Each structure stands twice: as structure tokens, then as C-alpha cells.
Simulated scan of single mutants.
Amino acid sequence: MENNSAFDSFELQLTNESKSFLREAGKWANFLGILGFIGLGFMVIGAFSIMAMGSAFGSMGGGAGAFGAIGSTFLGVIYLLMVLLYFFPVLYLYRFGSRVKKAFANNDTAMLTSSLENLKSHYKFVGILAIIMLSFYALAILIAIIGGLAS
């Protein structure tokens, strides 16, 4: 026995106003995606600059120089890991923006579906990242409270 609700045969249609909103959202997402890639490029340059400065200071000699080189290399690697982490939401946002523009330019439903899939992936990634960060904050607060009580 099948349970067919009224929503099973419901077909969603986009009004001209909702199409306009999606077009504009796509333009902004494309713009923000491009800015995100530029920002990631600057972060990569910054990471390699930090590592290069550390090794330059490390080659000067002295006791702190070697630690500075190791510390700056570690900091540069952390920066590169942040680039890798931020790459995916920027990529999803850019794909949403570019594909929604193509979908409306070519009246392509499959492309619109693909663009919305990338928007979903963007928000899912950012949401999971927010949960992870909130968990780290809660853990840090808990450790600080326990450390405060212990001292």
C-alpha cells in the first residue's frame, strides 16, 4: 500500500522574483568566491614568506635562531593547513555562483540543480566547521576552568 501525499505530486516553480534573487545571489557568490581565491593566494604567499624569514633568521646563528626557524616553519605549515581548510568552502561558493549564472543563461535545470548542490555543500562544510570550532572553544573553556580551580 502506497502512501501518496499531496506533496508527492507537487511541482515547485520559480517565480520571476525568485529567479531574480537567485541570479543576484549567484553574482555575489561568484564575486565572493573570486575574492576568497585571491585571499587564499595571499595566505599561501604569507605562509611561504613566514617560512623563508624564519630560515633566514635561523641561518644568522645564535641559540634563538634555530628555534625561530623551526617555529616559523611550523607557523607556515599551520597557515598552509588553514589555506587547505578554507579552500573547500570558497570552491563550493564559487561553483554555486558560476553555475547559477550558467543555468539562467542557458535555461538549464540540471546546471541549476548542480549550483544548489554546491550551495548545500558550502553551508554543510561551514556548519560542520562551526560545530568543530564551538567544540574546541567549549573544551578550552572547560580546561581553563579546571586549571583555575586547580591553582
Rank of each mutant, 00 (worst) to 15 (best):
L134K: 04
M133F: 05
V100M: 02
L40G: 02
I132R: 04
N30G: 01
G58R: 02
K101L: 03
Y92D: 01
D108I: 10
Y92S: 02
T109A: 07
I34R: 00
K120A: 15
A25P: 01
G36I: 00
I50D: 09
L81V: 15
A29Y: 05
R95T: 04
F125M: 07
L116A: 12
M43C: 14
I132Q: 07
A110I: 11
F48L: 07
G39V: 03
S72I: 02
L119H: 09
F67E: 13
Y137F: 08
L134T: 04
V100E: 00
G62V: 02
K102Q: 05
A47M: 05
K124T: 13
M43Q: 15
G41M: 10
F87K: 07
D108T: 10
A64H: 08
F87G: 05
I45M: 13
G36Y: 00
M82A: 14
A66K: 01
K124M: 13
I34W: 06
K124C: 09
M60N: 10
S49D: 08
G65P: 03
N118R: 07
F96I: 05
S18M: 11
I131N: 03
G39L: 01
N118G: 04
H122P: 09
K102C: 01
F87S: 10
G127T: 13
S121K: 14
F67D: 13
G76I: 09
F21P: 00
V77W: 08
F31Q: 14
K124W: 10
S114Q: 14
N118K: 06
I78L: 15
A110P: 04
L93E: 00
G36C: 00
K101F: 02
I70L: 11
I34P: 02
M60K: 11
R99G: 00
N16S: 08
F125E: 02
R95G: 03
I50V: 15
F48T: 12
F42R: 08
F42Q: 09
I78T: 15
Y92A: 00
L40P: 00
L32T: 05
V77A: 12
N16P: 03
S20D: 09
H122F: 15
N106I: 09
V90E: 02
S18Y: 04
T73R: 12
G58F: 02
V90N: 00
S114W: 06
K27N: 13
G127A: 13
T113R: 06
I50M: 15
I38K: 14
W28R: 06
K102A: 03
M43P: 03
A105D: 13
G62S: 01
F104G: 01
A110H: 07
I45W: 10
E117D: 12
F74M: 12
T73Q: 12
S135C: 14
A29M: 07
G61H: 00
S115M: 07
A56Y: 09
S115G: 14
G65K: 03
A110F: 08
S49H: 10
T73F: 15
N107D: 08
F48M: 10
T109W: 08
G68W: 02
A69Q: 10
N106P: 07
L80T: 04
S121R: 12
A69H: 05
E24K: 09
V77D: 12
G58D: 03
F88P: 00
I38E: 06
F88Y: 06
F136V: 05
I78H: 15
R99A: 01
I131K: 02
A103L: 05
I45V: 14
L40T: 02
E117A: 12
I128H: 12
S121I: 06
V44M: 07
A29Q: 06
